[in-house]
Simulated assay, not measured.
Amino acid sequence: MTAASTTLRGVLVAFAAYAVFAFSDASIKALHGTVPSFQVAFTGAILSLAALPFIKGPGDSWLDIFRTTNRPLWLVRFAAGATGAIASIITFTKLPMAEAFCLLFLLPSFVTILSVIFLKEDVRWQRWAAVIVGFLGVLVVLRPGFRELSVGHLAATIGAIAAAIAIVILRKLGPAEKRLSLYGASLLGTLIVSGLLMLSQVVVPSLQQWLFLASYGLLGAAGNVMLMTAARLAPATLVATPQYSQMIWAIAFGYLFFNDSVDLPMALGIILIICSGLLTLIRERKRQVPLPAAVASGDAQSQIATTPVEGEAEAPMR
């Protein structure tokens, strides 16, 4: 098989992975808030354990889930994983899908800002321009002062910031940190935090609700495994870029199943936000740093899938 055909396979698998993530998020929306967010996050995290055998490397131990080269940063990822998962679930419960994606797609902009603050990265005008374009797009979508903002908008912003913190920590730890440890930090955070918080309000799901919960958790795990497969076949930029196809799924699901609509200002804002993200991805690729991957996975794990581990080249081409 030629390198070109292998790369094409990787890109196609990436498109399929982001579609799977979109179906996972639509499952949250389909619950219509009938199951508490903490319980949804806990159930999703339990089902996400299914991805662990695919993430475990040949020389890894299951205890590597708890091991780390930097415990304080591991604990921050622990907290960020829980926060991001719960916030994302609230976002898709409260907002139309396209609007939820618009705010979550601010992830690359938040990564840029946090990288300057905590990693002391040298950010040039091109990346700052992308950040400004992204925030302008959000202003066009939200139109503050002309429409009422809700807890869903706040949750989306918190979710994007939490995912950005997780990625900045990923960059700080570097490829020496095992992928199993990185995945374990966020997964354990979601399990423990949401498990404790849901104790005050637990409902017994109906059969249909169980199906949506299973769809959310298992599809999220499957998306991560597919994204990891794509990263082995194609360069990271080509794997990360198709994430914006999730917006197409969001608009389609919103229109067909949830009676959502997209007006002209929102369409313009979506275009600006996508342009901002693509500009950031191009700049990140030139700097050869871990790329922000899918932002819509409720378990906030998808950036792990395209991250090289120790001794592994980034997104190798065969």
Rank of each mutant, 00 (worst) to 15 (best):
A160E: 06
S181P: 04
S194T: 11
P144S: 09
L196R: 03
E148W: 08
A129Y: 11
V140N: 02
V133G: 01
G223E: 08
A240E: 09
G134I: 03
L170F: 06
L149T: 08
R127E: 15
G195W: 06
L196T: 11
V140K: 07
L238W: 13
R127V: 09
V133C: 14
A236F: 07
P175M: 10
I161Y: 02
N224D: 09
T237Q: 03
A231R: 05
A214H: 01
T157E: 02
G145L: 06
I132H: 01
P242S: 00
W210C: 15
F212N: 13
F146A: 12
R171H: 06
W210Y: 13
F146M: 05
A164M: 08
G174E: 00
T241K: 03
D122H: 10
N224P: 07
G217Q: 02
Q209L: 09
V204S: 14
V193H: 08
Y216A: 12
M198P: 00
G220H: 06
L196A: 12
A240V: 05
M226L: 15
S186T: 14
L197A: 13
T241G: 01
G145T: 01
T229Q: 15
L136N: 04
P205K: 11
M198E: 07
L238H: 14
L139V: 12
S194F: 07
A222Q: 03
A155C: 06
I158K: 01
L238F: 15
Q208Y: 11
A234N: 04
L182A: 12
R127S: 14
R143L: 14
L170T: 07
F212K: 03
A231I: 02
L180F: 11
Q209Y: 05
P175K: 14
I167R: 00
V133P: 00
V138R: 02
A234W: 05
L188I: 15
